[in-house]
Amino acid sequence: MTAKEVRWPGKELTAKEFYNKVTVTRYRPEAKFAWSAGEAMSRFLAELQRGRLIARSCSSCKRVLFPPRMFCEECFRPTDAWVYVRDTGTIETYSISYIDLDAKRIETPVYVGVVSVDGASPKMGIMHYFGEVAPETIRIGLRVKAEWKPAHEREGSVLDIRYWRPLRRGE
């Protein structure tokens, strides 16, 4: 680091040494979970299954909180009422991903981003996929609408929305 210190510790291994030469131990944890969805998310998931988006309102700060939560983190008090919001919104930001969960390369890119939802307070939204778009047509500020799975295929999941697509004329 300085004139006093010349030796920098650390024994680098090549990938070949790491995988084939040095002694190692291996471990694959089996960690399986079931998370309780809680009050707000249970209702949110149930409404998704019905093809609707729901939020909670706070009568103190007058915000419509989406995704819904049972307490207002700003006022630090319980939220007051369930409020349906619309299944249309605005692209706040997006990415076009060429990698999967494990950083492996994928052939068909995934359009993903944040949609702020109409009817919720400004900028409040969720992350989701976009469809019926191309690199040239997707943009921040684009107005979009949820493309729902048919009712019988919905199971109470964010995936009950296939993706968000550009608004069509008249919508």
Binding site: P67, T93, S97, L101, G113, M127, V158
Partner: peptide, 24 residues
């Protein structure tokens, strides 16, 4: 686990979205 993980996100997504927002 409920809102984000079903979409099979890679953490790079979030940075890409932030970078895009900043640049735009």
């Amino acid at each position: 686990p409920i809102l984000d993980r079903p979409l099979k996100p890679n953490l790079v997504w979030i940075f890409a979205m932030e970078m895009n927002r900043y640049m735009t």
